[in-house]
Design a protein around this nucleic acid. Structure first.
Lengths: 292, 292
DNA sequence: CGAATAGTGTCTGTCAGACATTATTCC
DNA sequence: GGAATAATGTCTGACAGACACTATTCG
């Protein structure tokens, strides 16, 4: 690698600021959790312009860190996303086992969603943002980070986003007029993409187990599917289907302490199995999504 | 937007070069086509360091253009990907109808794949690359662009990449030792991700029709699936399945001029229907992919 | 004619979806 | 006891996968 500095010199000599605009790189996180049978997303209220007072996905520029030995190193995109999420939730980053392209951060799962880089998406300068998707069971009440006036879990159905049916009909991913919490930048679009990814991932991955506790009942797992998909599922068939998929769930050999709040027997407890993909998949019932 | 310059000033005042490293943004394209029943990827041979003489995915930095009125404007990420692809193939960018998240460039389909930004992936500086995936039926013989010594369609099975089975077993996405065309940067990883995305997309989208001519036979469509998936399919069942999926293919009301080269009747011709998703999907037979 | 391919008919095992039923627990 | 929920049993229609077979065309 002795040619590195030489190559770098040539690169910088060739670098034409007019042809290669200065670009900022940020990460944004669509963090989802389920609270009170509703799907919630973590939002922060911006304290500074642009879009001051508007709500936004937690995120920020990728940074250079200095370790204990005084050496500088740059964070990966995923580390940046985990950091941004931790800054808003106080979660400790537990460098867990990577599996299925997901990395654990405590019990939070992170995966890359997509990258958004339209030239005018940030009025300050050209900013390309790499969006990540995070799923968590129950998370601490968020606290506002340094550059945020507030942080909160917000039910996604209060944001006036278009439904999946609207989107396939060609609707733009913008909020309905009159929605109280208006999102900054193109974050409505990013959030819509994240929600569709989450809905889709429930079909063919065991992702739903990331929304519940370590031990859970089949009914709790079904609630996750019903909440994220926004439709009721047939309980007996759901149970049979889940248990028939190899590696999805494994019996924990115990039951809940009590039955349902309004009666009913105690439920058996399960924990996540070792499957990374569900075969066969749990497919949503197709409406007219396929048409056109 | 009168506050734009003010906000920009504040932003730049806050900008700490040590905390926010200078980042380059590039796009890379995994362009796939089928030649002689083999899946091929478009590669260019690098003329300059780093990785001089090594082969790489076509790509480069996002640029600022000057239009006929002398105004400068920046390209979107997707426009940059289309430009990089056009530079190597001579294809004209036909601003076609956007559908299913795909944009047409002539008869080429482009979709975003993923973004790669590990700090050391480019020895020159921090470079974040947004990878795109392109599919095309038959494409012109590539010509080397400005910074490339050569450009060629290369059968992916000559690149010594790990098989899908290797990958689920935890293999890194690197090339086998002794492979003649060694890929630069982390392009082996990007290519492997692109191939898996392509294989997966054949299952639940009508993407396969992007690999064949406007009018095609069911046999030609089956060849696409067999080539991309790398497995033989049962011809009668494939035909029945394809015809049963609403909106996948529609009869063109004609047959081929001649039968098969070695005999056989003339085939009926079809063209792509209006479906954006296949319901029910054409699923690959699951091996042990789901395990672990 | 022989070989190769397109296309149809049919059977079987599996599975999704629906319904009915039993068992258990809370109020 | 009454209501609600967990869990199991069973039926049916749809479909994937396999095999057999016919029809058509090229050499």
């Amino acid at each position: 690698m002795t040619e590195r500095s030489e190559a770098e010199e040539r690169f910088l000599a060739d670098y034409d600021p007019a042809a290669y605009p200065r670009v900022g790189v940020t990460v944004d996180v669509v963090a989802l959790t389920i609270l009170d049978r509703r799907l919630n997303v973590l939002l922060v209220q911006r304290a500074e312009p642009p879009f001051a007072d508007r709500w936004a996905l937690p995120g920020g520029f990728i940074k250079t860190h200095t370790d204990s030995a005084g050496r500088q190193y740059e964070e990966t995109l995923e580390q940046a996303a985990a950091r941004e999420l931790a800054e808003e939730t106080g979660l400790l980053a537990d460098n867990g086992h990577p599996e299925a392209g997901l990395k654990s951060l405590g019990r939070v799962y992170l995966e890359q969603l997509a990258t958004y880089g339209d030239p005018d998406r940030d009025p300050r300068m050209r900013v390309v943002t790499v969006a990540y998707l995070a799923f968590a069971p129950e998370l601490p009440t968020p606290r506002a980070g340094s550059d945020a006036a507030a942080a909160a879990w917000v039910p996604v159905d209060e944001l006036g986003l278009p439904s999946p049916a609207d989107l396939v009909a060609g609707r733009r991913a913008t909020q309905r007029p009159g929605t109280s919490r208006r999102l900054a930048f193109d974050h409505a679009r990013i959030l819509v993409d994240g929600l569709e990814r989450a809905r889709s991932k429930l079909e063919y991955t065991p992702l739903a187990t990331a929304f519940v506790d370590q031990d859970f009942t089949i009914g709790e797992l079904r609630e996750v599917y019903e909440t994220v998909w926004g439709e009721r599922l047939h309980a007996p068939n759901f149970r049979r289907k889940v248990l028939s998929v190899p590696g999805f769930v494994e019996s924990a050999g115990a039951t809940t302490e009590r039955g349902g709040a309004r009666g009913g027997p105690r439920s058996q407890l399960y924990h996540a199995g070792d499957a990374r993909l569900l075969h066969p998949a749990l497919l949503r019932s197709a409406t007219e999504e396929q048409i056109r």
